[in-house]
Amino acid sequence: MMTIFTDGQAEAEITESSYCWKKNSVKVEDGYLKSTGMVTHTRIPLKHIDTVVYSYNPKKPAIVPVLKIIGKGTVLCEMEISAEHIEAVQDWMLNVIES
Results as ranks from 00 to 15, higher is better:
residue 67 L to P: 07
residue 66 V to T: 15
residue 3 T to W: 06
residue 80 E to W: 00
residue 52 V to G: 06
residue 12 A to H: 05
residue 47 K to W: 06
residue 62 A to M: 13
residue 36 T to V: 06
residue 40 T to N: 13
residue 21 W to I: 06
residue 71 G to E: 14
residue 75 V to Y: 01
residue 41 H to F: 08
residue 12 A to K: 10
residue 36 T to Y: 10
residue 4 I to K: 07
residue 6 T to C: 03
residue 84 E to G: 01
residue 23 K to Y: 07
residue 23 K to W: 03
residue 4 I to F: 03
residue 43 R to P: 04
residue 98 E to I: 04
residue 52 V to Y: 03
residue 62 A to E: 07
residue 15 T to V: 07
residue 10 A to E: 12
residue 95 N to G: 13
residue 20 C to Y: 00
residue 58 P to L: 13
residue 10 A to G: 10
residue 58 P to R: 07
residue 57 N to W: 00
residue 53 V to S: 10
residue 75 V to L: 04
residue 14 I to F: 07
residue 26 V to Q: 02
residue 34 K to W: 11
residue 44 I to W: 02
residue 1 M to Q: 09
residue 14 I to V: 15
residue 59 K to N: 10
residue 87 E to Q: 13
residue 33 L to K: 02
residue 26 V to D: 01
residue 30 D to R: 08
residue 64 V to T: 14
residue 12 A to V: 11
residue 69 I to E: 12
residue 26 V to H: 07
residue 99 S to N: 15
residue 79 M to K: 01
residue 44 I to Y: 04
residue 48 H to M: 12
residue 35 S to C: 10
residue 77 C to W: 00
residue 41 H to E: 14
residue 77 C to Q: 13
residue 17 S to D: 14
residue 74 T to V: 14
residue 31 G to H: 08
residue 77 C to A: 14
residue 36 T to F: 09
residue 83 A to I: 15
residue 66 V to K: 04
residue 55 S to G: 09
residue 49 I to H: 01
residue 5 F to M: 11
residue 73 G to H: 05
residue 63 I to E: 03
residue 86 I to M: 05
residue 71 G to L: 10
residue 78 E to R: 01
residue 49 I to P: 11
residue 1 M to N: 09
residue 86 I to A: 03
residue 87 E to M: 14
residue 31 G to T: 12
residue 21 W to V: 05
residue 78 E to P: 00
residue 12 A to D: 00
residue 23 K to R: 15
residue 39 V to W: 08
residue 34 K to M: 15
residue 25 S to F: 00
residue 68 K to Q: 14
residue 74 T to M: 09
residue 27 K to A: 10
residue 51 T to E: 15
residue 37 G to R: 09
residue 68 K to G: 12
residue 91 D to S: 10
residue 83 A to H: 13
residue 43 R to D: 15
residue 5 F to I: 12
residue 4 I to Q: 06
residue 20 C to Q: 09
residue 37 G to C: 06
residue 50 D to S: 08
residue 96 V to N: 06
residue 44 I to V: 15
residue 51 T to P: 05
residue 57 N to A: 06
residue 94 L to M: 14
residue 5 F to S: 09
residue 17 S to P: 08
residue 88 A to L: 08
residue 52 V to R: 05
residue 15 T to G: 10
residue 45 P to F: 05
residue 74 T to D: 15
residue 52 V to Q: 06
residue 59 K to M: 10
residue 34 K to T: 15
residue 10 A to D: 11
residue 60 K to I: 03
residue 66 V to N: 01
residue 81 I to W: 03
residue 45 P to I: 11
residue 51 T to W: 07
residue 76 L to G: 04
residue 70 I to G: 05
residue 57 N to T: 12
residue 98 E to M: 13
residue 16 E to T: 02
residue 44 I to L: 13
residue 83 A to F: 05
residue 14 I to C: 07
residue 18 S to N: 03
residue 1 M to L: 11
residue 39 V to Y: 05
residue 14 I to R: 03
residue 9 Q to H: 01
residue 78 E to C: 04
residue 50 D to N: 10
residue 42 T to Y: 01
residue 20 C to M: 02
residue 75 V to D: 11
residue 81 I to N: 03
residue 28 V to D: 06
residue 41 H to D: 13
residue 88 A to V: 10
residue 96 V to H: 00
residue 15 T to E: 11
residue 34 K to F: 13
residue 66 V to R: 02
residue 64 V to C: 08
residue 98 E to P: 00
residue 93 M to Y: 00
residue 49 I to L: 06
residue 99 S to C: 11
residue 11 E to Y: 01
residue 68 K to F: 10
residue 17 S to V: 12
residue 90 Q to Y: 01
residue 25 S to A: 09
residue 75 V to N: 04
